[in-house]
């Protein structure tokens, strides 16, 4: 029972400073097993910066973050992935000139064992591992109904499918925590509904905790269990969707104060 209470991810007064600007300051987030947490906030609030901090793209200037009890500060991005944090990107970053299947197979790389000599001399082990990886990758693609596109270049996929492929690729890294950066951005309502189903399916099937950045409020409010609201790099509020929806400060952060509205900008 004691283990249940250790958060999968915990940030302790995490912060980063670019010059004089505190892009993220004193952020404390806790994510427990199986949770789906939303991270929302106005543009420029520092949501993606938090992702970049957690995945080792930036190094935090203050505070620390802990994955399953292990301090992660200072790890490089690929080490963070090895430890078990996978992510998607706000502006899709697929390997465009690689096939859909290869995109996923790349992410299996860290679990493949064939060494350089085995790969070059094409030993039976190499072939076995390649086949197994292809099978695993195809299974993942099937989950997202992408298996029909396996041999296409990733850049030729429709936009919504590219988003799903990015999630599939993140899943292939066999992670403990999934970070989704605005997965619904630019999607039409049908695609958003599809995405919602996919996220639900992920939780049922894998039971992994997810931290989700999203601007689509109806999506966030309907699927997240808890929400953190970020403004000017600091946590403004946190709580269940209902609490957040009724929180005055949050509404102010998004829409401004009521009395300012009348004399507002021209």
């Amino acid at each position: 029972m004691a283990e249940e209470k250790i958060p999968v991810l915990e940030t302790k007064s995490l912060g980063i400073q670019f010059g004089g600007l505190k892009a993220v300051n004193d952020v404390n987030i806790e994510i427990y097993k199986g949770e789906l947490i939303g991270l929302i906030g106005p543009n420029g609030a520092g949501k993606t910066t938090i992702f970049n901090l957690i995945t080792g793209i930036y190094t935090p200037t203050t505070g620390s973050y802990i994955l399953c009890g292990k301090r992660m500060n200072g790890l490089k991005t690929h080490q963070v992935v090895e430890a078990g944090i996978a992510r998607t990107f706000q502006n899709i970053r697929l390997f465009k000139k690689m096939t859909v299947l290869e995109n996923v197979k790349v992410a299996f790389n860290k679990n493949m064992k064939a060494n350089l000599m085995q790969s070059i001399f094409r030993t039976p082990y190499f072939w076995k591992e390649e086949e197994e990886t292809t099978e695993k990758a195809m299974e993942l693609l099937k989950l997202f109904k992408l298996d029909g596109f396996a041999d296409q270049f990733a850049e030729n996929l429709p936009y919504g499918k590219q988003r799903l492929l990015e999630i599939a690729r993140a899943l292939a890294t066999d992670m403990k925590l999934l970070l989704l950066d605005e997965p619904a951005a630019g999607m039409n309502p049908v695609e958003t509904a599809e995405l919602k189903e996919s996220i639900k399916m992920l939780r049922e099937k894998f039971g992994i905790p997810i931290l989700l950045i999203e601007h689509d409020m109806s999506l966030v409010m309907s699927i997240c269990e808890r929400i953190y609201v970020l403004n000017f790099g600091e946590i403004l509020a946190s709580g269940t969707p209902d609490e957040i929806a009724g929180n005055k400060e949050v509404i102010e952060a998004y829409l401004g104060k009521e009395d300012e509205d009348e004399g507002g900008d021209v």
Binding site: T55, E102, V106, N109
Partner: peptide, 23 residues
């Protein structure tokens, strides 16, 4: 091989490659 795949993924997008666990 997996090495080549990693290599090409770096060419395509270095950050995404790192975020997929490629050293």
């Amino acid at each position: 091989s997996r090495y080549g795949r990693a290599l090409i993924s770096i060419r395509e997008d270095r950050i995404a490659a790192a975020a997929s666990g490629i050293n």
